[in-house]
Amino acid sequence: MNDEKNISSGMSEVVKTVCNIVEGFIFVFGCYIVLYGQLSPGGGFAGGVILAAVFILIMLAFGKERVLKIMPRKRGAFIEALGALSFLAVAWAGLYVSGIFFKNFIPTTAASHFKLMSGGTILIYNIAIALKVMAGLFLVFFVLSITRVILEGDKLKMVKKQ
């Protein structure tokens, strides 16, 4: 059908232009939310969702070919697993370094309070969660969007497009 072609090649020129301008800002904002999670509202999950929104935005505006160039499915799955693994690794490092699972083993001083590095391991956890959520949420959206209903004869039929 006609609109299928439109979807695969993305939306109109206006949307594409605006998207080009905005996507960098959203990405930086997501990174900010992740990095300042231990000091202000936000954190790994919220920031990760914003980062995933960047990819979803690109996918909606330009079609999935372009987003697959940045983040193929395999790479997404790998980043997701990597995020979870690094989270676990830091948790286990607490057990290894100071004998207690999940122990915050990076020392923090009173002088560093309310600064970026005051959270100890929490910052690393946040980054790990953000990686996981970003890749995971993007993949969920992507996998759900590759099936599409088309009209075949007088029956609706669902096709999968890779």
């Binding site: 999950f45 759900l144 099936t147 029956k155 609706l156 039929k157 669902m158």
Partner: peptide, 22 residues
């Protein structure tokens, strides 16, 4: 987050059911 996971899985299964049963 848990609700999101369950919902995503539900929708995915639902899409697959639509594929099979129409």
């Amino acid at each position: 987050v848990i609700g999101l996971a369950v919902t995503a899985l539900m929708v995915a299964v639902c899409v697959r059911i639509y594929e099979r049963y129409g």
